[in-house]
Simulated assay, not measured.
Amino acid sequence: MQGRSSAWLVKHELVHRSLGFDYQRIETLQIKSEDWHSIAVISYVYGYNYLRSQCAYDVEPGGLLVSVYHLTRIQYDVDQSEEVCIKVFVPRRNPIIPSIFWIWKSADFQERESYDMLGIHYQNHPRMKRILMPESWIGWPLRKDYIAPNFYEIQDAH
């Protein structure tokens, strides 16, 4: 079953794959990393003016990484806002996705957290550096194939 956003993307000849609807009837779309920036800009122009959340996850050990965006169209004269979920799948060897910081400023810390925990690099992000782990940390703790070190360095809190 094709949703409203998917139909709109088909009409404008934008490549995507419909993943159906979630339990809240929010349409989920899969797009390629190289198409994400243009689709993000078009989505903003189309009225998706709020990035509700961005997160990422590891599909399986050695498999793909996914960056998930929940976009919302907020209008003043409408009781129920329209939402869409967009998933960008990337290979774990070179996980690069265009940053959408310049479209939705709220992506700043969210993209940095996905970078810090899973190693997804958000191209053209103004401050792409670790946000939770120390800069000296090696590896990406939320990857399913991550091997935790058997020691932890005690650091001064000062």
Score class of each variant (00 low, 15 high):
Arg112Thr: 08
Ser114Met: 07
Gly119Ile: 02
Ala148Tyr: 06
Trp36His: 02
Ser53Ala: 05
Asn150Ile: 05
Val84Arg: 00
Arg93Tyr: 12
Ile131Lys: 14
Ser99Glu: 04
Leu65Gln: 11
Leu14Gln: 12
Pro98Ser: 03
Pro134Cys: 02
Trp36Lys: 00
Ile120Gln: 07
Asp58Ala: 01
Ile26Cys: 06
Val45Ala: 09
Leu118His: 06
Val41Pro: 09
Leu65Trp: 10
Asp145Thr: 03
Ser33His: 07
Tyr122Arg: 08
Ile100Ala: 11
Lys32Thr: 02
Glu111Asn: 08
Ile154Tyr: 11
Glu113Tyr: 01
Gly62Val: 06
Lys32Leu: 06
Asn150Tyr: 05
Tyr69Trp: 10
Leu65Asn: 09
Pro98Ile: 00
Ala40Lys: 02
Leu19His: 03
Ala157Ile: 14
Arg127Cys: 15
Ser18Cys: 00
Val68Pro: 06
Ile86Ser: 05
Ala7Ile: 08
Tyr146Ser: 05
Trp36Leu: 02
Leu132Met: 13
Gln2Gly: 00
Asp77Pro: 03
Tyr57Gly: 07
His70Phe: 06
Ile103Gln: 03
Lys129Asn: 14
Ser99Leu: 04
Ile154Gln: 10
Ser6Gly: 12
Val15Arg: 13
Leu132Asp: 10
Val84Ser: 00
Ser67Ile: 10
Asn49Ala: 05
Val78Ile: 15
Pro61Tyr: 12
Glu34Phe: 08
Val15Ile: 14
Leu29Asp: 00
Pro149Cys: 04
Ile103Val: 08
Gln155Thr: 14
Gln24Tyr: 09
Tyr57Gln: 10
Ser6His: 01
Gln2Met: 03
Val41Glu: 13
Ile147Met: 06
Gly63Met: 08
Tyr46Ile: 05
Ser33Cys: 06
Lys11Gln: 14
Val41Ala: 06
Ser5Gln: 12
Glu82Gln: 13
Gln54Asn: 14
Pro98Asp: 05
Phe21Arg: 02
Val45Leu: 13
Glu60Val: 13
Arg112Ala: 04
Pro126Met: 14
Asp116Arg: 01
Gln80Ile: 15
Val84Ala: 02
Ile96Tyr: 11
Gly63Tyr: 07
Val10Ala: 15
Ala7Leu: 14
Val78Pro: 05
Phe151Pro: 05
Ile74Thr: 01
Ser33Tyr: 04
Trp102Met: 15
Gly47Pro: 08
His37Pro: 06
Ala7Thr: 14
Pro141Ser: 00
Arg127Pro: 12
Asp22Asn: 10
Ser38Cys: 11
Gln155Trp: 07
Leu65Ser: 11
Ser33Phe: 04
His12Thr: 03
Val59Ile: 14
Lys129Thr: 14
Val68Arg: 13
Phe89Thr: 09
Leu71Glu: 06
Cys55Tyr: 10
Ser43Tyr: 08
Asn49Lys: 09
Val66Ile: 12
Leu132Ser: 09
Ile120Thr: 03
Tyr152Trp: 12
Thr72Gln: 13
Val78Arg: 14
Glu27Gln: 02
Asp58His: 11
Asp77Tyr: 08
Tyr152Gln: 15
His37Met: 11
Leu64Gly: 13
Tyr50Phe: 15
Tyr46Met: 12
Ser99Pro: 03
Asp79Tyr: 11
Tyr50Arg: 10
Arg4Phe: 13
Ile39Lys: 02
Pro134Val: 03
Glu13Met: 11
Gly47Tyr: 05
Trp104Thr: 02
Gln54His: 15
